[in-house]
């Protein structure tokens, strides 16, 4: 994808912004972040989006590079997260998409939003349900990428036991309501949906302070 730039409304102070740039005030109004935090996230976004392709957009390879230190390693879950962050489905994550998606991972974000995101993540085939075979596929993928070793029968037992708890109507698949009930009873199932970093983002990226034009 080529490099596409647009000018901001106040060019005297602001840098030229990459395609998909949205004003921090707009993003702050729609998310769990303050304006300063959105500006800090822009520092991170810039770093990630110029790591390989230098076009100010996060490509899947750059996302993988940030997660795994290599752009080559395909990973079911990382690729699923990338797909969900890419709200426009144009193969890249733009700044607004990055902020809106990360907002769900803010420790203060609504649990219902986290649960909804996780549901979409685990609904591999986009049927509107988490199917038992999808859950098995994900457990096998996790085992393949890790040092954990479980027998096929142990995997089956884990998947069956989880489904027996969650699939309350016994139709072999989880609908959004069953999922919501399940995570209420098993909140640790959403532990990967909260990033403590996001509560301290302006400390993590203090360089934003020299550029900030706002007082939150």
């Amino acid at each position: 994808m080529g490099c596409a730039w647009s000018s901001s409304s106040s060019p005297s102070r602001r840098q030229r912004r990459a395609q998909g740039y949205e004003e921090p005030a707009v993003l702050a109004a729609e998310t769990s972040f303050t304006v300063s935090e959105v500006e800090a996230l822009y520092e991170l976004y810039n770093k990630l989006s110029y790591s390989i392709f230098k076009d100010g957009l996060i490509h899947k390879e750059e996302f993988r590079l940030a997660l795994f230190r290599t752009s080559e390693r395909a990973n079911l879950f990382a690729d699923r997260v990338f797909h969900l962050f890419d709200l426009k489905r144009n193969g890249v994550i733009e700044f607004g998409e990055f902020v809106r998606s990360l907002s769900i991972f803010h420790p203060k974000a609504l649990v219902s939003d986290k649960a909804a995101f996780a549901f979409k993540l685990y609904d591999l085939r986009g049927t509107g349900y988490i199917e038992k075979e999808e859950l098995r596929e994900m457990v096998v993928a996790l085992l393949d990428e890790s040092d954990l070793c479980l027998s096929d029968s142990a995997v089956d037992e884990i998947v069956d036991n989880t489904f027996s708890q969650a699939d309350t109507n016994g139709d072999g698949r989880l609908d959004p309501r069953e999922w919501e009930e399940f995570v209420k009873k098993n909140p640790t199932s959403l532990r990967n949906m909260s990033l403590p970093y996001l509560q301290d983002i302006t400390t993590t990226f203090p360089s934003f302070a020299t550029h900030s034009e706002v007082n939150d």
């Binding site: 991170l44 770093k47 990630l48 790591s51 590079l65 940030a66 997660l67 795994f68 230190r69 990973n75 079911l76 879950f77 990382a78 690729d79 699923r80 997260v81 990360l102 991972f105 996780a118 993540l121 685990y122 859950l135 994900m138 457990v139 993928a141 996790l142 990428e145 890790s146 954990l148 479980l150 142990a154 037992e157 884990i158 998947v159 036991n161 989880t162 708890q165 399940f182 098993n186 640790t188 199932s189 959403l190 532990r191 990967n192 990033l195 403590p196 970093y197 993590t204």
Partner: peptide, 25 residues
């Protein structure tokens, strides 16, 4: 005892879901 594990908790251990790495990059 592996059968006590919740499959979704197990999945949450995936490095691909550890977005904290974005901040360490």
């Amino acid at each position: 005892e592996p059968v006590a594990l919740n499959a979704f908790e197990l999945i949450s251990m995936s490095a691909g879901l550890n977005l904290g790495n974005l901040f360490d990059s």
